[in-house]
Design a protein around this nucleic acid. Structure first.
Lengths: 205, 205
DNA sequence: GTCTATAAGAAGATAGAC
DNA sequence: GTCTATCTTCTTATAGAC
């Protein structure tokens, strides 16, 4: 990785831990192993580093089509997969989504920045909502709609199914961001939740 | 309200919007209507203002016994109330908890501070978890345990019932903190969620 | 592209008059 | 208790040598 990308990488880490204002350019330079003035050969100023992080985030987000295909399944193109989906498969999709969000190198650090900056930056608030609420919920809803249509799940209000399926994933994710030591506990709860969910909404075949 | 409390109040507002580091003592002074040096007659330094906010928060938290009796019901002392609890009553308790958390003057601003500072202050991380996850979940679990015992709810895993009941409340709360304009939407979802939950887990009487 | 030296300015805090 | 003036420190950013 070249110096420019090392600067972005270390800045991302520091911003995600302390927030933009609490990180000094000297600290970034230290981590990279250069002196602060050298940073200015790579970026116009501190804000430009931050902007580069956002650009990189947008690039990756588009690249992975909105982080929605984590399971490797596209519900629109491949609806048949869901016709005979098992409880185990649903657990796999749920934990997969959770662990991807939690551990993806770039995603997890950027989510913390979004969390920290959401109240004084409307752009970040919107990105947060779309990336961790509206987006995943729209995706899950599409998926559950198919499953209800195919008889995998009972005929229930799909919006509520979706909310009840996703909310625990979201809550446990924010828990692990805050207290990484509780990941095992969270994962256990998550699996139990999905099995319980499957039991509740599971169809008749 | 005397000047000292006005300083605390305006600081709380500013810290909750921008985070500690982004708020300058001059800005606090402006809001209060004095000059920055006058602040130092009331507080030793900026950190002391922050500490006073935390003290005040702790005082209020203990005063209301952990924000758990929002419904006005103590499940331990008054278990009989839950013997014939209606779906409407459950909606009332859920939305009451939600609206209290969301709108209580001090609570809501302090929660935003916890959100902003959680990743670089372990004390705040612990307060956040205990106040918005472990605490409410322990309370709800106690409540549901009673309701299962009394036959109001079916015999299901109480931990999962609790997780599935509370997670949407939590998620919608963080949504409204970020986007207050979506409160009506969130409240609608919340009510639908509780009725759906009641339908799923409701007992046989 | 990296360094040392340093400018420029912001922000926290103090001194002392009123 | 509040003010103006000022100090100090910290932080960003630039200048110019190598």
């Amino acid at each position: 990785m070249d110096t420019k990308h090392r600067i972005i990488d270390e800045s991302l880490t520091l911003f995600s831990q302390k927030g933009y204002a609490n990180v000094y350019v000297g600290e970034i330079a230290d981590r990279v192993g250069i002196k602060a003035p050298s940073l200015y050969k790579h970026f116009k100023n501190k804000q430009a580093i931050f902007d580069a992080i956002i650009d990189e985030m947008n690039r990756r987000y588009e690249e992975q089509a909105g982080a929605l295909d984590i399971s490797g399944i596209n519900p629109v193109e491949d609806a048949s997969v869901y016709r005979n989906i098992s409880e185990d498969k649903l657990v796999e999709i749920g934990t997969g989504l959770f662990l991807y969000f939690l551990h993806d190198d770039y995603t997890s650090r950027f989510r913390k920045i979004l969390t920290i900056e959401q109240f004084h930056n409307k752009e970040f608030a919107n990105i947060y909502s779309s990336q961790y609420m509206d987006g995943p919920i729209a995706y899950q809803k599409m998926l559950f709609q198919l499953m209800v249509t195919n008889g995998v799940f009972k005929e229930e209000d799909v919006d509520m199914m979706t909310l009840q399926f996703y909310s625990p994933i979201y809550m446990l994710l924010t828990l692990c961001d805050r207290e990484p030591a509780r990941e095992a506990e969270a994962l256990e709860l998550l699996k139990k939740h999905i099995r319980q969910f499957s039991k509740i909404y599971g169809g008749t075949h």
